[in-house]
């Protein structure tokens, strides 16, 4: 089973320490939470995992693959997919088109057949469309397929991002605040989908602000503050940890 492992990961910008000695494991088949107050360094961790930022120290592995110095698109090829905290969709393109983009790595038509739209490329596009439709169906959004992504509600846009990420059939899903802006029913529906995904053997790393959502869903939680992991364990234990309570003082714990 592939597992994402961060070993003693650190990052400094100039002289400023953004992360220090971070050790995180994200095992397959489970939902792992990464929480922490604003400015705790969650985004830095995400950027290092996805290859957007170089590590200052430590290493990151995924199964047998060393991701530490890999280019971002190679990391995606290794089986990591992500969603973005500030939704990043092609706003003018339809939902269906947005999801189809996610199939990039599954598509293999050659340049020549694409340039002249030989039968192979045309068939591939049909297959991709069908696969994208299946995803839309799973997320209950078939009826919205032709709508421009920018015209949808926050919750729907987040789901489109998830579908796009899932299109590549990733081993690990990195979800950056997936339920922000969703109502109770919507996030419950997502929770169900997340459990399904982990039942299929995928790993999920959930970066969240909504504590209740994390407590309900995660098997294991890491709490980040000041760039360090200050606590980890089962959600209930972590939330009772006095260190965590102190770190969150001054911030509302229940953001929902």
């Amino acid at each position: 089973m592939t597992e994402l492992v961060l070993e003693n990961v650190g990052k400094t910008f100039g002289g400023v320490v953004a992360s220090e000695n971070v050790n995180i494991r994200v095992p397959a088949g489970r939902i792992t939470g990464l929480i922490g107050p604003n400015g705790a360094g969650k985004t830095t961790i995400v950027n290092m995992i996805t290859g957007m930022l170089a590590l200052s120290s430590g290493r990151i592995t995924f199964g047998d693959t060393d991701l530490t110095t890999m280019m971002p698109h190679r990391i995606a090829e290794a089986g990591l997919a992500r969603t973005f905290q500030n939704i990043r969709l092609l706003k003018d393109a339809s939902i269906l088109e947005n999801v189809m983009i996610g199939f990039h790595m599954a598509e293999r038509s050659t340049l020549l057949s694409a340039l002249f739209r030989l039968p192979g490329a045309a068939k591939e596009t049909r297959d991709t469309r069908a696969a994208a439709m299946a995803l839309l169906d799973r997320f209950g959004m078939t009826h919205l397929r032709d709508h421009p992504a920018g015209s949808l509600s926050y919750g729907h846009q987040r789901r489109v991002e998830m579908m796009r990420a899932l299109a590549a059939d990733p081993q690990l899903l990195l979800l950056d605040e997936p339920v922000a802006g969703m109502n109770e029913a919507e996030s419950a529906e997502l929770a169900r989908i997340f459990r399904e995904l982990t039942d299929e053997g995928r790993a999920i790393l959930l970066i969240e602000h909504d504590m209740r959502f994390v407590t309900d869903l995660c098997h294991h939680v890491y709490v980040l503050d000041g760039g360090k992991v200050i606590s980890e364990g089962r959600p209930a234990d972590v939330l009772a940890d006095p260190v965590v309570v102190t770190a969150y003082l001054g911030e509302s714990i229940d953001a929902a």
Partner: peptide, 19 residues
């Protein structure tokens, strides 16, 4: 489709494995 995503958002493009 790949050109579209590269032009609109490079971060998304690489996150989807686009070289």
């Amino acid at each position: 489709r790949t050109f579209d995503v590269i032009r609109e958002d490079e971060a998304v493009a690489v996150s989807l494995g686009v070289p």
